[in-house]
Amino acid sequence: MLKGIVIAGPTGVGKTDLSIKLAKEINSEIISADASQIYKDLNIGTAKITLSEMREIKHYMIDIVNPDSDYSVGDFEKEVNKILFEKENSFGTKSKNIMLVGGTGLYIKSVTDGFADLPAKNENIRRELDKKSLEELQKILKDLDEKAWSEIDLSNKLRLVRAIEVCRLTGEKFSELRLKNKKNNNYKFLKIFLTRNRDELYERINLRVEIMIKNGLVEEAKKVYNKYRENLYKISSIGYKELFLYFENKISFDEAVELIKKESRNYAKRQLTWFRKEKDYIIYNFSEMSESKIIKDILKRWKNF
């Protein structure tokens, strides 16, 4: 069995810098596991890595679809396993190692633990559900599958639609079906989770939002708003949906910025909750340990993994 490394953690914790340094140490390529960085045009608000930051480390799963596309965790799992299969079968060449880096827990889990074989999307059902409001979809899902309703991001219309779609197509509960995982690769993963003390993490997130604003997030979000105006409800990435409200004069600019900070902190909190429930993760706290020491310890574990 081949081996890889997972570098997970909440938004703003410092995954990118550490993963680049670690990738150089172990001759690795990086697969991004970020549900927002797969989208084209969403750069500043997703803290997408730049070509200069990549430092010649090959990255996968960045800028692969338009932000109004119906892209699911199942699509991600299939694409990543295709990459892993190709690397596994690169006969005659010295294949590089693989690191899975990001904060989208379900994306990572679909690769490391497997993903349920759920039905393909149904355009007729989606057209019907797309016309309904967020509140109507929440009620439909609660009636069909209360457990899924209690676990899902109720502000994410795409995820609500997908859960309802699966329930209707199978006659079963989405919350139960998605636990019937099937692993489709021959990799075992050393799982690393990076964190910081809450106050420090939240301070970093607030500062990062301010830097994004200075670096042109508003202008970028305006271009996205104009380009995808017909399907804006499909774009739920933090930093964009809040500014869309500002563009529509529903909130002030200052309110939009504060909302981005708040949503980013809440997202980090959800990420921390998710990964703390997962098994087999080795936890490193940047507030208690330097980056260089963390890398050194990971390398020692990797050697014996």
Rank of each mutant, 00 (worst) to 15 (best):
K227E: 12
K227Q: 11
Y228D: 04
Y228W: 07
R229K: 15
R229N: 14
E230F: 06
N231W: 01
Y233I: 13
Y233A: 11
Y233G: 07
Y233P: 05
K234C: 08
I235E: 02
S236A: 14
S236H: 13
S237G: 07
S237K: 03
I238S: 04
I238F: 02
G239R: 05
G239Q: 03
Y240H: 09
E242R: 11
E242S: 03
E242D: 05
E242H: 11
E242P: 08
E242G: 01
L243R: 02
L243T: 03
L243D: 00
F244S: 04
F244Y: 12
F244P: 08
L245F: 12
L245T: 04
Y246I: 03
Y246H: 07
Y246P: 02
E248M: 07
E248I: 00
E248K: 12
E248W: 00
N249C: 04
K250E: 09
K250N: 07
S252L: 10
F253K: 15
F253M: 12
D254M: 05
D254T: 13
E255M: 09
A256K: 12
A256V: 06
V257E: 04
E258I: 02
E258L: 14
E258P: 07
L259R: 15
L259P: 10
I260V: 15
K261D: 04
K261F: 07
K261W: 09
K262Y: 12
K262I: 00
K262D: 11
E263F: 09
S264E: 00
S264K: 06
S264F: 04
R265Y: 01
N266L: 15
Y267S: 14
Y267P: 00
A268H: 06
K269E: 13
R270E: 12
Q271H: 03
Q271G: 03
L272V: 10
L272H: 01
L272G: 11
T273Q: 11
W274M: 05
W274K: 00
F275S: 10
F275Q: 10
K277D: 13
E278Y: 03
E278D: 08
K279E: 11
K279Q: 08
D280Q: 02
D280P: 00
I282T: 14
I282E: 10
I282F: 13
I282N: 09
I283T: 13
I283M: 09
I283R: 09
I283E: 12
Y284F: 15
Y284D: 01
S287C: 01
E288S: 12
S290H: 09
E291A: 05
E291S: 13
I294W: 03
I295P: 07
K296F: 12
D297H: 08
